[in-house]
Design a protein around this nucleic acid. Structure first.
Lengths: 218, 218
DNA sequence: AACCTATGACTGAGCGCTCGTTCAAGCAAG
DNA sequence: CTTGCTTGAACGAGCGCTCAGTCATAGGTT
């Protein structure tokens, strides 16, 4: 009777209101809008990107834009959420592809760092832009961020104590996960230096030694 | 004959123009302005802080404010520069205090992390705000950032090959320096998690193991 | 077929307002 | 009177957002 809950599409419509009746249309148009907006935000930043620019880039009038999105802040939230989902999907995919026991962690790190390399613009954007989210959205974004880090913590803890892997206390495990996250993102937010001095391969190799150093040296 | 170059005061006046003749006055007033501005930026961010708020907080009229500073962007630059100088001074002081041979590096890291703890707000502000600097200033800020990292790279390289310290190739040295910088800053920009889960002491201890892990494990 | 009507996506001029910046006038000291 | 500093009303560009109206389409009626 009541309309069925859709779970399987990435951007939830209920959180951010719209004037348009046709939900499929909303989905399609929002993709369109978000895609253009991400590009504009990356190029000009949040504040210098005007709603008019967004409308033009997504081939709408401003009026139409505001049928699909109720404020610029809402749009910002949709952008952040979409990026996070992309990162998370990429990370999970990369991790599931490397189900091998032995060198599993090193390979997982390698794949994650590749993701950070490919999505450097997006990661940087997230760093720049989360600050402008209204408090309610901000929390939800941090939860997402934590979820990504958790993937590593899980991977680490599933290895902890196995084979030649040392047993790690929870705190070390936790922090190691965060370090992996951050050192990957560092490839994006310190690109002005690291991407000039290292190839991504060099970076991965050295940082992997670094991370595994902590774990095996205890 | 020509007015003598002043080198010894933190905020250089030549870079940012002023209408006021008396240089000492400029120096004093600017300190006053910058102090208030930092607080406001930390609390409200760059964009939501208006020039009027700044004027009021530093006990000036807007008119006067614009006698000492020629634009909001210039003010932003002064703020960034001042913060960097504070961090740099604090780091250098912390490093010079710990001139002991043996545990020198570990102690240096400890002191640096304390600085990051004390100046967490400022570090966060730098992360949020550099993006709004005009290109010319941005470069100069990155140079400063690099200078801070260089302190660690120097410290590391002076130890490299000494005593029980392994010889490190330049790339590893370089990246280790950056890792120290970033893992310190991480205490600030991931505070929503790390400062909830760890005391600063725990954090320092684990991260120090982490960093030294890389170096000794090669 | 021809006509009418209802629906809802789409349009864009323009409103209300904020905020960075200016400048004519004021004032204190020499 | 001149110089150096201060003041705050006034300016106007630019922004997010609205809303009265347009138009293409679908479906009902004759």
């Amino acid at each position: 009777m009541g309309k069925q809950k859709d779970i399987n599409h990435p951007v939830s419509e209920d959180e951010v209101p719209t004037q348009i009746k046709n939900q499929d249309l909303v989905r399609e148009r929002r993709r369109q809008i978000i895609d253009s907006t991400v590009k504009l935000f990356i190029e000009h930043g949040y504040h210098k990107t005007t709603t008019r620019m967004i409308a033009k880039a997504s081939k709408f009038s401003i009026g139409s834009l505001y049928e699909y999105v109720s404020s610029k802040e809402d749009l910002l939230y949709l952008v952040c959420k979409t990026i996070h989902e992309e990162v998370q999907n990429a990370v999970e995919k990369a991790l599931s592809d490397t189900a091998k026991e032995k060198e599993r962690l090193a390979e997982a790190i390698r794949q994650y760092f590749y993701v950070c390399d490919r999505m450097a613009d997006h990661i940087l954007l997230m760093y720049q832009v989360t600050q402008f989210l209204p408090e309610k959205w901000k929390k939800s974004i941090l939860v997402n961020e934590l979820a990504i880090t958790d993937i590593f913590i899980q991977a680490l803890s599933s290895l902890s104590g196995q084979n030649d892997f040392p047993q790690l206390d929870e705190k070390r495990l936790n922090l190691a996960g965060h370090n992996i996250s951050v050192l990957g993102q560092m490839w994006a937010f310190r690109r002005w230096h690291v991407q000039k001095e290292f190839t991504i391969e060099e970076y991965i190799n050295i940082q992997t030694d670094f991370i595994l150093g902590l774990i095996f040296q205890v």
